[in-house]
Each structure stands twice: as C-alpha cells, then as structure tokens.
Design a protein around this nucleic acid. Structure first.
Lengths: 121, 121
DNA sequence: TCAACATATGAGCAACTGTTCATATGTTCA
DNA sequence: TGAACATATGAACAGTTGCTCATATGTTGA
C-alpha cells in the first residue's frame, strides 16, 4: 500500500473522526514546544546521561569524580555534561581547577521518578 | 591528555570524594534498571512519538486517523506505534478492520507534564 | 612565566534510528 | 472465496549520536 492510498483512506474509510481530529489539533502544542519536549527527553534517553544524573542526584561532583565513579573517560563525561547543561538539567561552578556540577532543580528527579514508577510495574 | 592521565587523577588529585563515591554506588540502581529507564525516555525523545502520544492523549484513535492527523505515512506511524507498544505506553484493541490505540495509563501524561513544566521556565 | 592538573572541544568513526518503499498479514463484505 | 480496506513488517538508506583520540583552554602554585 502506498502513501496515496493512505491519504485516500482519510476521505473514504468508514470511521472518519474528523471532528475529533480538528478538536485535538486545537489543544496540540505547537511544533516548537513538541520539539523542545522531545529534545529534553532525549537527554534522559541515554543510560550514560541517566547514570550521570543519578550520580549528581547523590551529591555534586567534579568532572573527574564523575568519570571515575562511572568508569568513563573524562572526555566522554565532558561531552555528555555539555548536553545536560544545554538542557538546563545541571548547573556548574568553577572551584579552583575543578568544575563542580550539580542538578539544576527538582524537575530532574521528578521526571526520573515518574519514569521509574512506570518501569516498576 | 589521555585516558591514563585521567585515571591517575583518581589517585592523586586534591579533592578525592572517595567516600561520597562509594556511598553513592550503594543507592545507584543496577545497570539493568538504568538501561530500562533510558529506553523508556528514549520513547519520549522523538517528536514524532511525542506527537502520537499527544494525539492519543486527546482521544483513542486508529492508525489511519493518527497518520492523517499528524500528516504521516501509515507505515511510519505503525513503526512508531510498535515502539510505544513495547514500552507499554499504549494499549490497543482490534475493532473490525481497524486497530484502535490509546494511552496505557496515567504515567504517560505525568511524565510529559513534568517535562513540559521544565521546558516552560 | 612555566609546569602540572582539570576540563572542554573538534574531527572521525561505528552504531543506532526514523523514514520510505514494497510487501505481507489480517478483516469484512458481497 | 476474492476484492477492498487496514495494519504490520523487513530491507535499505540517510541522518544522528556517543565514543575515542588529539589537542586546546583554563587554573594554580612555584
């Protein structure tokens, strides 16, 4: 079946939900918001980054400690921290030669907690 | 700087957080759970799937309606529905020729709501 | 200022992902 | 049973992603 046949379906198949569809389109967030939302969840969608967040959930840490704790390269950690930083999931401050990272706010643990709840069923 | 220099850091650098690290390792969920968690969030980490979930948030729908609503190929939708199904984020039932999909439980909207809250700041 | 330490970053590569296309499976009705 | 409709699925391909390696930037103390 091709795409065109599918389009045809919209017109002729027996359960047209056109009312529901247009109704739903009103509440649907705009594309930008949906994209941002997906970008946010993408951060949680990698076990390395989840592990980093769990590490920071326990206590703030410098890059070096994160790398050692998770048995990862300093470079790999740094690359991932950049992504988490851009998503505003973590904050950081410089302290001497080290840079200390910590979770940005409670949303991080809320989101992970919700996810964990779904997993444990 | 090479990996080995980084490892060296664990031993010699001035802020050894060894206590914190071992403490944290106790509360750290095991690798399997972390992996599953990442897999779950991966589902939310694609704007197509987010859009599908929003569509189903409004009302249950057959594949065809989802495809038309989101202006996607039937095949593309079906592939993504399979992923959401495997993550138990959606349920389905057959009704005649159609297959009706709906959100599996409240976790989906909880998780998305938490994410949206983080975005809107 | 220079050496040592700590972190950040760009390039390159292998693995993964989402879409399309073609086709298979499943369902209804005549 | 066969035609039409609805959905599912495998292969292929392009785009993305996370890691490694090499190197750059930033900081401290002598």
């Amino acid at each position: 079946m091709s795409l065109n046949d599918t389009e045809h379906c919209e017109i002729s198949h027996e359960h047209k939900h056109d009312d529901k569809i247009s109704e739903f389109k009103k509440m649907m967030p705009d594309e930008d918001k949906l994209y941002d939302l997906a970008e946010l969840f993408k951060c949680f969608g990698d076990s390395t980054r989840i592990r980093i967040l769990f590490a920071l959930f326990e206590s703030e840490m410098c890059v070096c400690d994160i790398a050692n704790t998770l048995d990862m390269t300093q470079s790999a950690v740094s690359h991932q921290l950049k992504i988490l930083k851009q998503a505003k999931l973590i904050d950081f401050r410089r302290e001497g030669k080290s840079v200390i990272y910590k979770l940005a706010d409670d949303h991080v643990s809320s989101i992970i907690a919700q996810g964990a709840e779904h997993i444990l069923e």
